[in-house]
C-alpha cells in the first residue's frame, strides 16, 4: 500500500470534512429551529468566498497587502462572516418569516427561489469566470506535519479554525442564555414564546450564526483550493447537507462527525475508487442513499428530529 498517498488523502479529507462540517452546522441549526431545509445555505457559503476575495483586494491584494498576512486573513474572515450573517438574517426575514404558517412546501420553494436568485446575482456581478485567491502569495508555501500527515498552512488553518468555531458554538448553545433560548425554541417554538422568549430574535440569531459559519467555510475553501466561482455553493451545499443527515440533522456533534466522514469518504473515493476524480460526487451521493436507507435518523439523531 502506498502510505504517502493514503496520508495525503487523509489530510485533504480532513480539510474537506471541516468545511462540510461548518456548512452542515448551518443546515442543522436552521433545521433544528424551523424544521426548514435552507436550500440557499450553499449559496451563502459561495457569497462568503466572494466577500473574502473582495476584502483581500480592498486590503491591497495578495501580493502587496496593506497589513501583514495574518491581519489580512483575520479581516477577510471578519468581513465574510459578518456579511454572510447579515445576509442570512435578511433571507430569513424576507423569504421564510412570512411563511411560518404557510403549507410546509411553501418555504421550501421560497428557499429554492432564494438559492437561484443568489446564484444568478453572483453570476451577474462576479461574472462566470473563476477568481483567484493567490493564497501562496499571501501566506507562503510552508507545510507543517503531525506525524506522517503533512498540512499546508491553509489546510492547517481550516482544520484548526473549524474545530475552534465548533467548540465555541457548542459552548454557546449549552451554556449561554441565548443558547438555551435556541434550544427551547427548537424543541417547542410556541412554548418558548410563552416564556417571553422573543422567538423571532432567536431565529434571526440562529440564521446569523449558521450563515456566518458558512461564510467562514467559504473563505477557508478559497484559501485551500485557490479558486472560486458563482456555482460553487450548489455542490458544497449538497455535501454539507449529506453531512448533516449522516450525523443526524439537528445535532451539533452529528454535523461535525458527519462532515468529517463525508470529507474523508470523498477524498478516499477520489484516490482509490474507479474514476474517482470524475465520479467522486456520485460516490458521496451513494453514501447519502445508503445512510438514508440504513439509518434515516443519522448517527447522532433521535427518531424524532428535535434537538439543536
Amino acid at each position: 500500500m502506498n502510505w504517502s498517498l493514503f496520508f495525503d488523502l487523509t489530510v485533504s479529507g480532513l480539510t474537506l470534512g471541516s468545511l462540510y462540517a461548518l456548512i452542515a452546522l448551518g443546515y442543522s441549526l436552521v433545521y433544528g429551529i424551523l424544521k426548514l431545509l435552507n436550500f440557499a445555505h450553499g449559496d451563502v457559503y459561495m457569497i462568503g468566498a466572494f466577500l473574502g476575495w473582495y476584502a483581500l483586494h480592498a486590503l491591497g491584494g495578495p501580493v502587496n497587502p496593506t497589513f501583514t498576512g495574518a491581519v489580512v486573513l483575520f479581516l477577510m474572515f471578519v468581513v465574510a462572516m459578518l456579511g454572510c450573517g447579515v445576509l442570512g438574517v435578511a433571507i430569513e426575514r424576507f423569504a421564510y418569516r412570512p411563511l411560518r404558517n404557510a403549507p410546509r412546501i411553501a418555504p421550501l420553494i421560497s428557499a429554492l427561489g432564494v438559492s437561484i436568485f443568489l446564484q444568478n446575482s453572483a453570476l451577474l456581478i462576479f461574472g462566470a469566470a473563476f477568481r483567484d485567491y493567490d493564497t501562496f502569495d499571501l501566506i507562503g508555501v510552508k507545510t507543517y506535519n503531525i506525524g506522517q500527515l503533512f498540512f499546508s498552512v491553509p489546510q492547517l488553518l481550516t482544520v484548526v479554525a473549524a474545530i475552534g468555531l465548533m467548540v465555541a458554538l457548542t459552548l454557546f448553545v449549552a451554556r449561554s442564555r441565548l443558547g438555551k433560548a435556541m434550544r427551547s425554541t427548537s424543541f417547542d417554538r410556541e412554548a418558548a414564546s410563552m416564556m417571553g422568549i422573543d422567538v423571532d430574535r432567536v431565529i434571526s440569531v440562529t440564521f446569523f450564526i449558521g450563515s456566518a459559519l458558512a461564510g467562514a467555510a467559504g473563505v477557508m475553501f478559497a484559501l485551500v483550493f485557490g479558486q472560486i466561482y458563482h456555482f460553487m455553493g450548489f455542490i458544497a451545499g449538497l455535501k454539507g447537507f449529506t453531512a448533516a443527515v449522516l450525523g443526524g440533522i439537528g445535532s451539533i456533534p452529528g454535523a461535525m462527525v458527519g462532515g468529517l466522514i463525508v470529507g474523508l469518504a470523498e477524498s478516499y473515493a477520489t484516490g482509490y475508487l474507479p474514476q474517482g476524480s470524475t465520479f467522486q460526487n456520485l460516490y458521496v451521493f451513494a453514501l447519502l442513499i445508503l445512510v438514508i436507507l440504513i439509518r434515516p435518523s443519522g448517527l447522532f439523531g433521535k427518531a424524532a428530529i428535535s434537538k439543536v
Binding site: R177, K180, A181, R183, S184, F187, D188, E190, A191, A192, M194, M195, G196, I197, S306, K307
Partner: peptide, 25 residues
C-alpha cells in the same frame, strides 16, 4: 405567565433549565 395545555415542558432540557427559561425575561 402561562401554564400551557399539556404543560409543554422543554423535554431535552433539565428541570433547572426549564425553570430558568421561565425567568427568561
Amino acid at each position: 405567565a402561562i401554564v400551557p395545555e399539556n404543560r409543554r415542558l422543554f423535554g431535552p432540557m433539565t428541570v433547572l433549565e426549564n425553570l430558568e427559561m421561565g425567568a427568561y425575561l
